[in-house]
Amino acid sequence: MAADAIISCHAVAKSYWRGTLEIPVLQGLDLEIPRGGYYALMGPSGSGKTTLLNLIAGIDRPTGGTLEVCGYELNDLDDDQLAGWRSQHVGFIFQNYNLVPVLNAFENVELPLLLTGLSRRERREKVLEALALVNLTDRMENYPRQLSGGQEQRVAIARAIVTDPDLLVADEPTGALDAKNAEEVMALLERLNAELGKTILMVTHDPKAAHHARIQIHLEKGVLDRTVEVNR
């Protein structure tokens, strides 16, 4: 593993079983991503990009190979340890935002901090800081239904960064947004990468969104097809 790598995958394999039929999704994939990188995972449906993202984020387990992320060998962690690891090191951004509808923007962003030992005041400071970063301090009392799609995704980004994780994983973060909001969200992710040094790994079908990443990784049938550096 390179000294500056935050993600290191070695011969990672993942298969699903449908009855007695094994369906291989990832087949011995090797990959290293340096700290502070901004990577887009691309490929056709079924190429294994979301599966790879889930394995790297520690919400799924490989059937073969090793994964070292943020300094931890994920295969060595049990379920609870893995949950603790995720709460400290990974921020999730989903296509459908997945905000809790009965909590307002402030409370949604505060959720991951409930797992920390921070006091209420400390949590409030961190939430306000995260909401300021996504420029939504004035909407913190609003519930998800009172926000636009773009605003909801920005709240979700604030929730992902509020614990100051090393790694942000985003699964089609602009998939449910119109072009204008998608552009705003991508600009925000770019800023988080450039200014805060967050490592971002994003799955996307959208070439425009992928263009914001610095490196595009193309998967094909569960293997690494090619890596493309984005020229801007």
Binding site: I59, R86, Q88, F92, N98, L115
Partner: peptide, 16 residues
């Protein structure tokens, strides 16, 4: 179901 999965992805354990 999805919300519970999101909570767990954020780091909430199964017991929590």
């Amino acid at each position: 179901t999805t919300e519970v999965a999101v909570f767990r992805a954020m780091g909430f354990t199964g017991s929590q």
